[in-house]
Design a protein around this nucleic acid. Structure first.
Lengths: 209, 209
DNA sequence: CTTGAATTGTTATTAAATTGACATAGAGAA
DNA sequence: TTCTCTATGTCAATTTAATAACAATTCAAG
């Protein structure tokens, strides 16, 4: 039940994994689970699981364990999954189009409300029922439609300008796929998916073997 | 120059970022850089930079700093970028196709040699000059063509079966985009890109604001 | 050639994260 | 109801990671 502050990043990044595994347990109709059992399937120590969860309040019951449904729901709340999010995609290239078509996001409450690009060749196209608009129209669009999260799917070169444009529209959350670290205001949250960085981590280990 | 073992994951995950920033410096024709200067642009402390680099040997020179070109090259070696990699994509859906078309990988030496799927509708298609083959043909294909890395771009449901098939083909490195933690042999390296997990981390912070 | 400033490599210190330990609440059986 | 056993919540210990400190080395100026 604790509100927020000073939860470590390490803990936060484990939450979606808890959420995912609890979802699987729910699907299998598992009603209760102990930290020890969860430990065995998720791969964290039982101690870590209990400590992680206790950052947010006592969700378990001594002598019993955790109620799967309740815990799933609580972690969902912590992750902000009790509301839906309006999202837009900037950059209708391969990746932007793939994300636009990716159905899983909708299941979690992410509604794609707009796609923007600067390339006249793609402006006007419909992708997953959403029309690709001119990047110049973003400001007007944003003034009419609340936007919670923007996915940046442009090249490295264009990404910072896009970030600046998003800030001008008061968009406070960015999911960045461009291989660059964006400079943003303090009140803007950025989550990076640096694919190349990730791939190079893989080759590091390939080389080691 | 040290060979390998017990470098911490935290250090390894920073290496691609060093590589990326050094590349930018190279492009700007910067010849030398001190840990302090690098610290200012990359956002790690100078102390951390020096300690990170020293895990792999002394690349700098006291009183001078680091030679950008040399350091870039050394980190490239550490990351295994001195060779090229044959890659395949499993799953020619939106994401698989986007990755197939993504040019940046080629620049780093990743050569796409095959795409596989089980869906007859996509088998036979050509994506970025590579034909989509039947998943059943993987074994035969792998016996003819050495494959270094496989990108799993299937649904969650299919991913583990794919991983098993890859292991049967002696493929030792997997870049997994399916939202599941794969069970693999000890000699197989897996790097996950769990997009949903990443997105939920973002909503956590959106909620906090 | 000498000196002073700069900057590394490396050790020491501090901070953070993980793991372990255990008292205690509650479940479940008799 | 009472007793036993389980499993949490939490504090302590340990391990790991990050930062700071500094001696040693090199550059570059005079």
């Amino acid at each position: 039940m604790t509100s927020n502050q000073n939860i470590s990043m390490a803990v936060i990044r484990r939450l979606p994994k808890y959420h995912r595994y609890l979802r699987e347990l729910l699907d299998k109709d598992v009603k209760r689970i102990s930290s020890k059992e969860l430990s065995e399937i998720i791969g964290f120590t039982a101690s870590q699981i209990r400590q992680d969860l206790n950052n947010f309040g006592g969700f378990g019951q001594q002598g019993y364990g955790y109620n799967v449904e309740d815990l799933y729901s609580e972690i969902g709340k912590i992750l902000g999954l009790t509301k839906t999010y309006n999202t837009i995609i900037i950059g209708a290239g391969n990746l932007g189009q793939a994300l636009a078509n990716y159905a899983s996001f909708a299941r979690f409450g992410f509604n794609l409300v707009g796609i923007f690009d600067v390339n006249p060749k793609v402006i006007g196209l419909k992708i997953n029922d959403v029309e690709v608009r001119d990047m110049d129209d973003l400001k007007a669009f944003a003034s009419e439609t609340p936007i919670d999260i923007a996915y940046i799917c442009t090249s490295r070169a264009g990404a910072q300008d896009v970030a600046d444009a998003l800030m001008a529209c008061k968009i406070k959350a960015v999911w960045n796929f461009a291989p660059v670290d964006l400079r943003v205001d303090d009140d803007v949250v950025v989550e990076n998916v640096h694919l190349i960085d990730n791939l190079l981590t893989l080759t590091y280990f390939v080389k080691e073997q």
